[in-house]
Simulated scan of single mutants.
Amino acid sequence: MWETEEGLDFLASETLKARYLREGEKNWEDVCERIAKAVAANEEEYLDFKDLMVRKIFLPSSPTLMNAGTELGQLAACFVIPVEDRVEEIFDSIKTAALIQKTGGGTGFDFSKIRPEGSSSSCGDDATSGPVAVMKLFNEVTEIVKQFGRRRGANMGILDISHNDILSFIRAKHVEGELSNFNLSVMVPDAFMELVEADKADEVWNRQTDVTVGCIFSEIVEGIWRNGEPGILFL
């Protein structure tokens, strides 16, 4: 690997310039100086923290590297944003996510409150599009925010395993490039896993759709084998 005077390889050095150097900063030690001054409570902490970062023994999150000691001052990497089942609230959540991602933060959403595809909307007889369609809106906004921020936007999308659209959610990333700004996770309670462990694959899990435990679990395993998605979030 190519080495620089800071001991960084060529790729790391270019990433440092593109994402983390602020006005007046020239190297990695300048970044460490800014961060340590911003977060330390006293001189001893400042010296210890700076030393750990300079030697790359410990590194804080990317938002801390970018924003500590700046007017923005946003140091957190992960935010959970509620998503409700009304158009106004959905777009409020999208706006909140965009503003957070612009600062370098990642965002997570539980889409379980979104009504299933084809169900009646609150505005009348029009059918709703379902959680996967709503996720595509969030995905496109993240794509746009990438053009304005220093860091690639990242989302976690979650759906309860009892949701009527759980199979379309599990399959949502089967096509390469779909929802590319999302990682997916299925929320799974103990009761479901107990049925899996008891080999009760034919047990109907969702009475509204007649989908069985075995069908859902097989789809999860297929997705993980195919491309590592979805993950499982145990309640």
Results as ranks from 00 to 15, higher is better:
residue 147 Q to R: 11
residue 102 K to N: 12
residue 170 I to H: 05
residue 188 V to M: 08
residue 187 M to D: 05
residue 159 L to M: 15
residue 150 R to E: 12
residue 133 A to G: 04
residue 199 D to Y: 02
residue 115 R to G: 15
residue 208 Q to W: 05
residue 117 E to Y: 07
residue 96 T to N: 02
residue 189 P to V: 06
residue 129 S to P: 01
residue 97 A to V: 09
residue 178 E to C: 10
residue 198 A to S: 14
residue 203 E to I: 02
residue 205 W to E: 00
residue 109 F to S: 04
residue 183 N to A: 07
residue 108 G to H: 07
residue 145 V to G: 05
residue 165 D to T: 08
residue 194 E to H: 07
residue 111 F to Y: 15
residue 197 E to W: 05
residue 181 N to I: 00
residue 158 I to Y: 12
residue 157 G to Q: 02
residue 208 Q to Y: 10
residue 194 E to Q: 12
residue 141 V to E: 15
residue 164 N to Q: 11
residue 125 D to Y: 12
residue 197 E to C: 05
residue 198 A to E: 03
residue 156 M to R: 12
residue 127 A to Q: 06
residue 160 D to T: 03
residue 118 G to A: 13
residue 150 R to K: 15
residue 181 N to K: 08
residue 182 F to N: 01
residue 111 F to S: 12
residue 209 T to H: 06
residue 200 K to V: 01
residue 112 S to D: 13
residue 151 R to E: 14
residue 140 E to Y: 11
residue 140 E to F: 10
residue 207 R to Q: 09
residue 148 F to P: 00
residue 188 V to F: 06
residue 172 A to M: 08
residue 194 E to P: 00
residue 96 T to V: 15
residue 114 I to T: 08
residue 153 G to A: 09
residue 141 V to G: 02
residue 160 D to Q: 09
residue 116 P to Q: 01
residue 168 S to K: 14
residue 203 E to W: 11
residue 201 A to F: 11
residue 156 M to Q: 14
residue 125 D to V: 14
residue 210 D to L: 10
residue 170 I to C: 07
residue 111 F to N: 10
residue 191 A to W: 02
residue 132 V to S: 06
residue 181 N to M: 04
residue 201 A to Y: 13
residue 177 G to T: 11
residue 190 D to G: 01
residue 185 S to A: 15
residue 159 L to C: 14
residue 117 E to M: 07
residue 135 M to T: 07
residue 207 R to S: 14
residue 208 Q to H: 14
residue 209 T to A: 04
residue 196 V to C: 09
residue 205 W to G: 02
residue 96 T to H: 00
residue 112 S to I: 11
residue 149 G to D: 09
residue 157 G to C: 08
residue 169 F to W: 02
